[in-house]
């Protein structure tokens, strides 16, 4: 096999129908690659299409054109019907959102949440404690419901849950944007450690260039209407 990057986005394009006439181009010909265990930042102001690109990567939004490959395998544009295929797809790319509250089941404690995710992917649910420890959540937090966790603790839980299937790529969309700087630094540090220890590749989407640049090797800057250019860190 050719020595292809772990994650390849190739000519992604997405338009939305506007009320009335015309179409809004949210992303236009967006291409990039991420190496195994590498990290790419995507920055741009609101409306520049960052979230659209993140959602196309995980498959929450279907591109009009272009595609995504992980390990040389094209990702199907729609979620497969068969459970095994769906789970295999989930193990390729996992996503963490700005507000983890909406993506966490409010009835499950942190530990239950992780055990459920681990079992779903046929992994040993005994490793839940390890995962919690990995993201810096203690016993008290393990037994807590999401609403009894702080914003930073919830984001740690969301990261742990995203790691549960053992994904190759973690896509984080504004994952620290709602957090205080002191908590943000705790999470950035955690992500750095996780990347080093597990070799998971990161795609880190954000509006704050200083933050994005801090934890990624390379940064893609999106301008409005989805065009983009790529710059190495320190190139600004």
């Amino acid at each position: 096999m050719k020595d292809e990057a772990l994650l390849v986005a190739d000519g992604l394009r997405k338009t939305y129908a506007l009320p009335g006439r015309g179409r809004l181009t949210a992303a236009e010909d967006v291409s990039f690659t991420v190496a195994r265990g590498g990290s790419l930042g995507i920055v741009g102001e609101s409306g520049s299409g960052k979230t659209t690109v993140a959602r196309m990567l995980v498959g929450l939004v279907r591109p009009d054109a272009g595609g995504v490959r992980v390990d040389g395998r094209p990702r199907e544009a729609r979620t497969p019907r068969r459970k095994a295929a769906r789970l295999a797809r989930a193990r390729e790319i996992q996503m963490v959102f700005q507000d983890p509250y909406v993506s966490l089941d409010p009835r499950l404690t942190a530990a239950q949440c992780l055990r459920t995710a681990l079992r779903l992917h046929g992994r040993d649910d005994g490793t839940a404690a390890e995962l919690l420890d990995r993201v810096g959540l203690g016993e008290r937090e393990a037994a807590s419901l999401p609403r009894h966790l702080s914003g930073g603790q919830r984001q740690r839980l969301a990261i742990a849950r995203a790691l549960a299937p053992g994904p190759r790529v973690l896509v984080l969309d504004e994952a620290v944007a709602a957090l205080d700087v002191s908590i943000q630094a705790q999470i950035l540090r955690l992500l750095d450690e996780i990347r080093r220890d597990t070799g998971v590749a990161l795609v880190f989407v954000g509006h704050d260039l200083a933050v994005v640049q801090h934890i990624t090797d390379e940064v893609l800057v999106m301008r409005r209407a989805g065009s983009s250019n790529r710059a190495p860190p320190g190139g600004f």
Partner: peptide, 20 residues
Amino acid sequence: SCSPTLGDTSRTLLPIPGRP
């Protein structure tokens, strides 16, 4: 020391423990 700065990517961030 916990705030990232532009261009200064080599500096390690030192988080403040706990929460506000």
